[in-house]
Every structure is written in structure tokens, then in C-alpha cells.
Amino acid sequence: MPLHMIKLCVGCDTVEDLVAWKAAEAGGKRPWTMQTRQTPKRAPEMVDGGSLYRVFKGAILCRQTITDIKTVGEGPNSRCIVTLDPELILVAPTPRRAFQGWRYLTETDAPPDLGVDGFGDAPPELARQLREIGAW
């Protein structure tokens, strides 16, 4: 069973903002990467089918498949570079409180991809409201 990573998306309010930011960054020619300080100890489990789930304004809204995890540099200057598949997959909006850094996310706790439960065409804001009242 793959292991996933969850991280706050800071500086973008929506998935569309993230896509626009990536397109503007270096003309969209560089691969999708995410940098963090700590390299996951369970990185092999994440590369083997795991995804990076992104939290926007208190809700998990999308994911990207993790293709590689590398540690760059040494000592206090070392960083972890997570390479991601460029395809963003929308997931059922799921509330998530703010946290620092990143966290592991198990397969059982990961939200389903949109379309799986029949509400794939719902606007994200409507989907969030339906989740909050327990109707979705």
C-alpha cells in the first residue's frame, strides 16, 4: 500500500492559482518539484505509488503522483527535492487544519479522487460546503 505526503500550499488560494504559478515559473519548462528541509525516512514507500496531497485554505483539493525523492547538499544545508508528475488530480474536498512542514498520509486517510463518488462536476466551493454539512 503506497504512503502519501500532505503539505500546505502557501501562496495559492486555488488549484487554478497553482497551475498558473507553475506555468509562469520559467515558462513551465522545469519539472514539477517541491522542496522541503527533511527527507522522509519512508521515501521508498512514497515513490512506489504515493502522491503529494495539497491543502488550500483548510481543505485538501488535489494531488500529484510522486516520481522521485532526493536529498541535495550535506549537513545543515541539505534539502529534500520531491519530483512530481505534472498531472494534477482533483480530489474530494476534505477539511484539514493548518500544520507546519509536511505529514505522512495513509491510503485509508487519503480523500478519493473526484468523479469516484458521482460529484466530480461540482464546483470546489459547493463541494466544500456539502462536506461541511455532512451531505457529501
Rank of each mutant, 00 (worst) to 15 (best):
residue 2 P to L: 01
residue 2 P to Q: 02
residue 4 H to D: 07
residue 7 K to A: 15
residue 11 G to I: 04
residue 13 D to M: 14
residue 13 D to H: 15
residue 16 E to Y: 07
residue 17 D to Y: 00
residue 19 V to A: 15
residue 22 K to P: 05
residue 24 A to I: 00
residue 25 E to S: 05
residue 27 G to Y: 03
residue 29 K to R: 13
residue 30 R to M: 03
residue 31 P to R: 14
residue 32 W to E: 03
residue 33 T to E: 13
residue 36 T to N: 13
residue 36 T to W: 12
residue 37 R to Q: 14
residue 42 R to T: 07
residue 42 R to F: 09
residue 44 P to H: 04
residue 45 E to K: 06
residue 45 E to L: 05
residue 46 M to V: 13
residue 47 V to L: 04
residue 49 G to R: 03
residue 50 G to W: 00
residue 50 G to L: 07
residue 50 G to Q: 07
residue 53 Y to M: 02
residue 53 Y to G: 02
residue 53 Y to N: 01
residue 54 R to N: 14
residue 54 R to L: 14
residue 55 V to W: 01
residue 55 V to R: 04
residue 57 K to I: 01
residue 57 K to F: 00
residue 57 K to V: 05
residue 59 A to Q: 10
residue 60 I to C: 11
residue 60 I to L: 11
residue 61 L to T: 11
residue 62 C to Q: 13
residue 63 R to M: 13
residue 64 Q to D: 07
residue 66 I to D: 13
residue 66 I to A: 04
residue 66 I to Q: 03
residue 68 D to R: 05
residue 69 I to Y: 10
residue 71 T to E: 11
residue 72 V to D: 06
residue 73 G to S: 01
residue 73 G to D: 00
residue 73 G to V: 06
residue 74 E to T: 09
residue 74 E to N: 07
residue 74 E to I: 02
residue 76 P to I: 00
residue 76 P to Q: 05
residue 77 N to I: 05
residue 77 N to F: 07
residue 78 S to G: 09
residue 80 C to I: 01
residue 81 I to F: 09
residue 82 V to P: 00
residue 84 L to D: 11
residue 84 L to V: 01
residue 86 P to W: 06
residue 87 E to R: 12
residue 88 L to Y: 14
residue 98 A to D: 12
residue 100 Q to E: 05
residue 103 R to V: 04
residue 105 L to W: 06
residue 106 T to Y: 03
residue 106 T to H: 10
residue 112 P to C: 09
residue 114 L to F: 10
residue 114 L to W: 12
residue 116 V to M: 15
residue 125 E to D: 12
residue 127 A to H: 08
residue 128 R to E: 08
residue 128 R to F: 03
residue 134 G to Y: 11
residue 136 W to E: 14
